[in-house]
Design a protein around this nucleic acid. Sequence first.
RNA 1: GCCCCGUUCGUCUAGCGGCCCAGGACGCCAGGUUCUCAUCCUGGUAACACGGGUUCAAAUCCCGUACGGGGUGCCA
Length: 471
Amino acid sequence: MSQVRLRFSPAPTGFLHIGSVRTALYNWLYARHVGGTFILRIEDTDVARSTQESVDQIQQVLRWLGLDWDEGPYLQSARFDEYLAAARHMVEEGRAYECYCTEAEVRERNEQAMREGRPPGYDGRCRDLTPDDRAARAAEGRAPSIRFRTPDDGRSSFTDAIRGEVAVEWSTISDFVIVRSNGTPVFFLANAVDDLDMEITHVLRGEDLIDSTHRVLALRRALGHDDQPVYAHMPLIVGPGGAKLSKRHGAVSVEEYRDAGYLPAALLNYLALLGWGPDDGREILSSEELVTEFELDRVNTSPATFDPKKLEWMNGEYIRAMPLPELVSAVLPFARDRYRERLDIPRFEAAVRLAQVRSTTLVQIADQMAFLFTSDDEMEIDPASWEKASKVENAADIVDAVMAFVENCEWTDEIDPRPAIEAVGAKPGKVMHILYTAIEGRSLGLPLFDSISLLGRESTLERLRAARARL
RNA sequence: GCCCCGUUCGUCUAGCGGCCCAGGACGCCAGGUUCUCAUCCUGGUAACACGGGUUCAAAUCCCGUACGGGGUGCCA
C-alpha cells in the first residue's frame, strides 16, 4: 500500500479562520491516524493579496495548536516556473489557449449576460485564434491570459469519500483562466501540479471547493494523469442562523481564542466535534484519542454551527482536569501582563488553585485574583455588589464584629469569621456578601476564608475599615 | 438564472430498514450539596423539514417540493 500523503494548503491572505483550522486539524488527524505524511503548503499564487505576515502567522498558530507538519512549508510562489511550464505544455497540446480578452471585458460581458437572463461564463471567443489574430491583438497592447479548454459535453464525476459520487455536466463549466495576463498562475493550475508533484493521496478540504474539483481533475488529466487522489469535502462551519461565520458571532481567528485564555487542546477537541464524533459518544478527547478515533467516513455532511458556549464549557473541563503546576504556568503570562511587579508567586499559585474550579478560561482565573494584587487604597468596589450587600440589617455591627475577630484570631490558611457574625445575631449565609464585596471588590469570587488568609491581616482590616466608613 | 451540496432537540451529534412513541452532550429550567460564585449530584425541557413512493416494517432507501449553504472570479 502506498504512503498516504495529505496537505493543508491555506492562502496567506489574512488571519487563520477557525474553519481553516478545522480543515488543518482533520488533515492532521487523518495523517496521524494512518501514519501518513502531513504537508504544509502555502497557496500564495495571488501575489497581490498574500503577505509574509500571514505566512508566519499560519505556522505560529499551527505550532501553538500542536499540529506539527512533516514537510514544508512549500510556497507556491517559489514554484511558478513549474506551473507555467505545465501551462505551456497544455497550450502546445491544444488543451489550453491564449485568451486576449481583458479582465474588464470578460466581467462586462458576464454582467451583460446576467442582465439579459443568460448564464454567465466565458464564451470561448479566443478558443481558435489564428497566429495572425493573436499577433494583431498583441499589437494592440493586449497581454494574454491562458485559459483551459473544458470539454464541450459529457460529465465530470468523482467519488467523494464523505458524500459519494458528485457529478456535473461539462457544459455548465466554461473555459477558465489558469495563467493570469500578468503571467502568474491561478489556484487551479498550481493546485493540480502540486498535488501531482507532491504525490498527494488524500485531499480533505471544505465543501466550498467541491465544484473546483472537477476543474482540477481535468487539469490533472491534461497533464497526463488519469488517476486521482481521494477527495473528501467536509461541511462548512457556520455562524448562528446558518450564516457565514463572522466577527459578529464572536472571534473567528485562533489568536483571539488564545488571547482570551483558551487552551489549544480544548479548542482542538471542540473543533474536532464540529462535523465528526466518535461512535461511543465521548465528548472530551485528548489529541491522542482524537487521532486513534478519527475516521473519514464518520465525518458529517451538513454544516455545523459554531457554539461559543459549548467551547467555553469544554475549556472549563480542560482547566479543571489540569494538574495544578501546569495550570499555574499556563495562567502566569496572563497574570504577569495584568499585575506586573506586584505579582507574588506563592500567593499567585494559591489563587490559581482556588480559581481553578470556578473558571472557564485562563483570563477568568487571572482576573479573579485581582484583589490580591491591588493595593488597599486602589481597590475598586463594584457598585452593584455594594448596593445589594450593604443593605443587610446590622451591616455596621457585622463589619465591626468581623474586624475585631480578624484583629485577634490565630492566622491560619482559612480565616472563618462566621462565629463573629453569629455572635451579633446574624445568619452568615445571608450577610457575607458584604465581606466579599469589602475584601474582593465583588459579592462573588474566590472563597472568602482562603482569600482573607492570603490577603493578610493588615490588608483585610484596612479594607473592612474602608467598608465600615462607607456604611 | 444555471450548477453542486445539504436538511434529527435552540446548538453539536448518535442512528447507516425492525433494538427508536429516537440516545448522548452543550444550553436552559427545577431541586440537592456548599462561606459567595462555581464545581459536583439528581430530575426536567426539546427534534427525524414537507409530500409522495418502495417494503410486512423507514429517521434510515427512491422521487419531488420547500428551505439553507456553496459555486458560477485574471480569489482560494
